[in-house]
């Protein structure tokens, strides 16, 4: 039987997460000279979020249909440059309504 208290798990998680964020943030002082590295850092966050979203978003709701509806709503509103909140609510609403409709089909 494992007897590690929950607070130890939470502390370990918090420390790992904090050090990953803080060590590079504190240590990198100089402007990076390499144009390639600067380009890499410029594109990286967008690429990370993209890989996190696709394909995971398609299994994030009650069914693939509601997930597609939510994805479509978020994509259209995102391309229209709506706020984070608007896009998130619209996607949830689209997914919610789609799953409601599916029940009746």
């Amino acid at each position: 039987m494992n007897t590690i208290p929950i607070w130890v798990y939470i502390l370990v998680m918090a420390l790992v997460t904090y050090f990953i964020r803080a060590v590079p943030f504190v240590l990198f002082r100089r402007r990076i000279q390499s144009r390639f590295i600067r380009s890499l850092l410029y594109y990286m966050p967008y690429a990370v979020l993209s890989a996190m979203t696709i394909p995971a978003i398609f299994s994030s709701t009650g069914s693939i249909f509601s997930a597609c509806a939510g994805f479509l709503a978020a994509t259209v509103l995102g391309l229209m440059k709506k706020s984070l909140l608007t896009v998130a609510i619209a996607a949830c609403a689209a997914a919610f309504i789609t799953d409601l409709i599916i029940v009746f089909i």
């Binding site: 996190m52 979203t53 709701t61 939510g70 440059k81 896009v87 996607a91 949830c92």
Partner: peptide, 25 residues
């Protein structure tokens, strides 16, 4: 209700799309 909880599962990903799509255009 479970239906609301299910629908809220997409919120995070929708936010990610809202971050990456505007600069992509």
């Amino acid at each position: 209700p479970a239906s609301v909880q299910d629908a809220m599962g997409i919120a995070l990903y929708a936010m990610f799309l809202a971050i990456i799509l505007p600069p992509s255009t």
